[in-house]
Nucleic acid binder design. Structure first.
Lengths: 351, 351
DNA sequence: ACAAGTCTTGAGAACGCTCTCAAGATCGGT
DNA sequence: ACCGATCTTGAGAGCGTTCTCAAGACTTGT
C-alpha cells in the first residue's frame, strides 16, 4: 500500500482507474450494474491508493451519516465516573455498540444529556443537528422522556428505547427485568427463604417497577409475604445502606435480600457484616447488574446479569436495518441471566 | 424555540437576518470585524431558528473536523469487557475526554485497533481517512508503536502519546509511574517492611519498566533488597495468582507486595487468603489503577490512583490548542496519588 | 435485421459550510 | 475636506461525495 501524503479522494481513484467519479462511487457502495471487469479495475485502484471515503463528504451528499448516537444521563454517568462507583454501564454499552456498529461500517458516539434540565430539548437538538445521526439509542431514564422521544419522532430519526416497553414511536427493548426478578425471588424461595426483601430502584426508572412486579409475582405464587419487605433506593451505595438497615430493623426474620443494583447489594453486605450476620449463612443476597465489583467482594455476589452490551447491540442492528419505525414495533427482550456465586445459600433453620 | 421540521441551515439564518452567509458564518465562529449591532441581529436569528452548524459540512469546507479520536487496544479492551474484568480504563478515558471535548465544542470517538496484527496501518489509516480527526490520542501499548506514530506524523495529524516519554513526534504524557511506584515502596518501607515485592506488568508497556525503576530506586535508597522480589504478570487475574504464589514461595519473609494492576493485587489477596495470611496483618498490598473493584474487596485495597481521566483531558486540551507538535514537546506528567485503604499496615514483628 | 428494451457509464448539480478576494463604508491625519 | 488605511460586508468558488438524468452499448424478440 502506497504511503499517503495527501488525502486520497474519489477523484484520484477515478483518475487512476480511468473511469468517472460515479463509477467509483458505485463500486465503493456495492452498487449494481457495473461490469465485473471494470469493477475489478476500480477495486484495484482503490486498494493501490488506499482510498477510504470521507464520512463527512458522504454525509454532505445527502446519504447516511453512518453515525449512531447513544444518549446517556449526564448527571448519573458523571457521578459514577468521578467517584469510580463501579458501574460499567457506559463501558458495556459503548463497546457493545462500537463492535456492532463497526461490523456494519457505522460509528458510535456517546452524548451525555441532562434529563432534569429544561435544556434537554436544546442540548439534544444541538447534538442532532451537529451530528445528524442515522439512529439514536436512548437509555434509562431517558427512554421514556416525552420531550426527547417527541423531538426524535418529529425529526424522523429512528431511535431505540432501552428499558422501555411503552407503545409509541421508537423501538422498545427491555432486559427482562420482571422475569429476572421473578427468577431471583423464586431461586431464593427454593432455597427455603420465606421473608425475601427487595431494595428497589427509583420509580423514575420503569425497570424499577418491573422488578418489583416480578418479585411480587413470585412471592404471590408461593404465598409468601411482601408487606414491609420493600425499600426504595437510588441505586447508590448510601441509599443501599439506609435501605438494608431499615429492612433488617423492621424484619428480624428476613433472610434474603434482592438489591436492584450491585452497589446497593454491596452496601447491604456491609450492613450485614456490621450486624454480625454472615452472608450467605444468615442472609442471602442477590444483586442486579453483575458489574465487576461484585466478583471480588467477600463473598462474591450472586447476581442478575444485565445483558447491556447485547441489548445495545440489538438496538444498533435494528436501527441500521431502519425498520420503518412507524407502526408500533414489537418489544425486543434480551433475557437477563442469574449468575450464582457465593452470596446465596439455603435459609437458616430457625423453626 | 421554533419546532424544526427540516434541518436549519446557515442559509436559513442568513435569510432570516437579512445578511449574507458569510456574515452568519463569522458570527457563528466568533470571527472578528462584525458590527455589534449586526452580530446581535444574526445571533437572534440563530437562536430563533435553533441553528447549529453541521459538523460534516464544516469538515467539508476545509476547516476542522472537531473530532478527537482515541485509540485503544482492541484485544485487551474486548477481553476486559466481555469478561467484565473490572478495568475502567475505557470509561475513565472516554468520559474524561468527552467532557473536555464538549467544553471546546469537539467530539470524541473511540477506535479499537489491534496492535498485533499487521493490519494496524490499514485499520488505523481507514479510520483516519473516514473520520479525519483533528487529533488522536494514543494509549498504551500503542503509544510507542512505530508504525502508528509514523503514520500519524506523516499525515500531519497532531497526536498525544499517553504513557510514553520517548522523544519523537506527538505530545508525550505520563502518569508519573516511576514516582508513584517510588511513593508506594517508600510508604511500605516506612511501615517497617523490608522485603517488598513487586508484580510488574508486561514489558511491552513502558510504564511497567518505570514502575520497576521507581520500586528499585526506593529500595536502593534504604538499602533494601530486590533480588528475587520481582515477578512479571500481564495485568490479568490469573497471572497475578501465579506471580503471588511464586513470590511467596520464594520469599517467606516477604511482607508486602506492590501489584501493577488491581486485578493482580486482588489475585494476590486471594492467594494470601488461601495460605492463611491475613491482609494487612501478615501481608501488605498496594495496587496500581484504583478501579472500583478495589474498594469493595475485603479488605479494601490501598492503591495508586492512575489519573486517567485527567490525563486524557490534558491530552485533549493540548491537541485542541494545536501546539505545533513539531519540535519535541516536553513530557506532560499528571501525578498519580496514593489512596490509603485497609490493605496496608505496619510490618509484623518477627525479629 | 429493426424497434424496444435493459445495462452500463458519465456529466453535472447539489449538500452546508468556510475560504479568498474584492467592493463599499468608515476613519484618521494633515 | 481629501487621501490612504482599516473595517465591514458580500459574492463566488471549492471541499468530497452521491443523486438525477441522459446517452451510448448490448440484448432480445419477432
Amino acid at each position: 500500500m502506497a504511503r499517503v501524503r495527501k488525502t486520497v479522494t474519489i477523484r484520484d481513484v477515478a483518475e487512476e482507474a480511468g473511469v468517472s467519479l460515479q463509477t467509483v462511487s458505485r463500486v465503493v457502495n456495492g452498487g449494481p450494474n457495473v461490469r465485473p471487469q471494470l469493477r475489478d479495475k476500480v477495486q484495484a485502484a482503490i486498494d493501490r491508493l488506499g482510498y477510504v471515503p470521507s464520512l463527512a463528504a458522504q454525509r454532505m451528499s445527502g446519504s447516511r451519516s453512518y453515525i449512531i448516537l447513544a444518549i446517556n444521563d449526564r448527571e448519573r454517568t458523571l457521578a459514577d465516573w468521578r467517584e469510580r462507583r463501579g458501574t460499567d454501564w457506559v463501558d458495556q454499552m459503548l463497546l457493545g455498540g462500537i463492535l456492532t456498529c463497526s461490523k456494519h461500517g457505522y460509528r458510535m458516539m456517546v452524548e451525555l444529556v441532562d434529563t432534569h434540565s429544561d435544556h434537554v430539548e436544546r442540548e439534544l437538538g444541538a447534538a442532532l443537528s451537529a451530528l445528524q445521526p442515522d439512529g439514536v439509542i436512548l437509555t434509562p431514564p431517558h427512554s421514556e422522556n416525552r420531550l426527547i422521544t417527541e423531538l426524535l419522532a418529529e425529526r424522523r430519526i429512528p431511535f431505540a428505547r432501552i428499558g422501555s416497553d411503552a407503545p409509541g414511536p421508537g423501538i422498545p427493548l427491555t432486559m427482562g427485568d420482571e422475569g429476572a426478578a421473578h427468577l431471583a425471588t423464586t431461586r431464593l424461595a427454593e432455597l427455603g427463604h420465606r421473608n425475601i426483601a427487595m431494595i428497589a430502584g427509583p420509580s423514575a426508572y420503569s425497570l424499577s417497577g418491573w422488578r418489583i412486579e416480578g418479585w411480587r409475582r413470585a412471592l404471590a405464587e408461593r404465598g409468601l409475604p411482601h408487606e414491609g419487605l420493600l425499600e426504595v433506593g437510588d441505586f447508590g451505595y448510601e441509599s443501599g445502606t439506609r435501605a438494608a438497615r431499615a429492612l433488617l430493623d423492621r424484619n428480624p426474620d428476613c433472610t434474603a435480600i434482592i438489591a436492584s443494583s450491585d452497589q446497593m447489594a454491596l452496601a447491604a453486605l456491609e450492613v450485614a457484616r456490621d450486624r454480625g450476620l454472615s452472608v450467605p449463612h444468615d442472609l442471602s443476597l442477590i444483586s442486579f447488574d453483575n458489574t465487576p465489583i461484585v466478583r471480588f467482594s467477600q463473598p462474591p455476589l450472586t447476581a442478575i446479569d444485565q445483558p447491556i452490551a447485547e441489548t445495545v447491540s440489538r438496538a444498533v442492528e435494528q436501527l441500521i436495518a431502519r425498520t420503518p419505525s412507524e407502526g408500533a414495533a414489537a418489544v425486543i427482550e434480551v433475557a437477563a441471566t442469574l449468575v450464582e456465586r457465593s452470596s446465596t445459600a439455603p435459609a437458616p433453620d430457625r423453626a
